[in-house]
Simulated scan of single mutants.
Amino acid sequence: MGSTVNTCLNTGAWSLPTMAATATCVATCPSPPASTGGTATLNPSTGPYFTSGTVQYTCPGGTSPSTAGSDLLTCNSPNWSPAVGPLCATNCGPPPAISPNGAAAPAGPYIITFSFAYGCATGYSLRSPVTNMCQLSGTNGVWSVLTAPTCVRDNRNLDLVFIMEGNDNVETSTCSQLETTFADTRPIGPAGVLTSTNFPRFFQQQTFLTHFESTWNAVTQVKTRMAVQMHNGACANDAAADANTVRLLRSNIDLANYWMTTNEYRCGTATPVANLACANTYQFTVLNGDTSNQNVIIFALPDVLTASGYNTLRNIQLQGVDGIRSTLPPIFTVSLLQSTDTNYAVNVDYAREFACGTGMTTEAQCPRFLGSIFETNTAVNVLAAAFPAL
């Protein structure tokens, strides 16, 4: 008879099990699969590769595994898990940098899936958070954000109260007509976009406020806070102010969402003196969210040549404001007219006097006129110039 050979199979069994009395057969895996992309080194570099054993791949310099964990294979005899070697992808280069006033990006290497959040130098902020990630494209890493964001100078932290204009003939002939019609007619669509000519000045005030919040680089209700109060006829006390308040300084109500979901328009004959005094005593309190920030009132004015409560009474209204001016924080005014309106020039003069005092009609005398309600960026720039960042 010829010799009989018993072979230890990679399954861990002998080919002739009845002759296996003198040795132990251990399951193994074949040589591990090679990496793709860059050529990785293996540890251990040679077999045998026993079941449950592992092989660690190390990608060459400048590359990294395309998927976390793909560089470690485990022998589950007779197969490897994962079944393929890693892809050694080229790392990303340095990320796009913010210049100027950006915080330095973290140091590399920038391997696949490396991510970081952009930041700014002290005194500057991003309009919104931006995260960049090194992502796989073929066998190379590419950044998810190819253009660095911009760091914008922080605006001064302020406590702002915006007094919305509600006047009985600004949009309709009577308040009751306006309030009734407004309850049924919503001239805005998704995201607060104006879709109708109904009540354009009232809704433009809403657009102004939501745009102002997104443009002024500190309105977070943590830094700069903004309250909104409707100008609804007389305002005799805190209860009246509370009834006409859309948002307190301490509130986090989303204004865009509020305008979309709340059918409310409060309207009455203009009484600016009472509303200024009312807003000052009610809104600027610790209970309602006042902080150590500079207090500011922004007052919306209609066409004072035609709006009831102003037209023939506008000089009397101005004298009344002059009488309480010393008790109020700085007043800034914004006109409900477009800057192309034929009455705009006269309204600008009055708005400056309203903000700074009778006779103060030039920009040099009174730089506290924010412009037209239709030009938010101009308003932001004027307010920023008045209160430079500290």
Rank of each mutant, 00 (worst) to 15 (best):
R186Q: 14
I188H: 03
R225Y: 09
V193M: 13
W143S: 01
D154T: 08
R201M: 10
Q221V: 05
F203W: 10
T197F: 13
T220K: 06
N217R: 15
D168H: 08
A234S: 11
P190A: 12
F212N: 00
T210Y: 10
Q229M: 12
A183E: 11
Q221R: 12
A218C: 07
P200H: 03
T220I: 05
A218T: 14
T147V: 12
Q177H: 07
D184Q: 15
F199K: 02
R225C: 04
W216T: 04
G192D: 04
P190T: 07
S214I: 00
Q229I: 13
M164G: 08
A218V: 04
T172G: 02
V161G: 06
Q206I: 02
T185V: 15
R225G: 05
P200F: 03
W143G: 02
N232V: 00
F199M: 09
R156K: 14
F162G: 01
N140T: 13
S214K: 13
A234Y: 10
A239W: 10
N237E: 10
R201S: 09
M226D: 00
S196A: 14
T224Q: 07
T210G: 05
T181N: 13
P149D: 04
G189Q: 14
T150V: 13
W143Y: 04
R201D: 04
F162D: 00
N155F: 01
C175H: 02
L194E: 08
D184L: 15
V170N: 08
P200C: 06
R186A: 07
A148C: 07
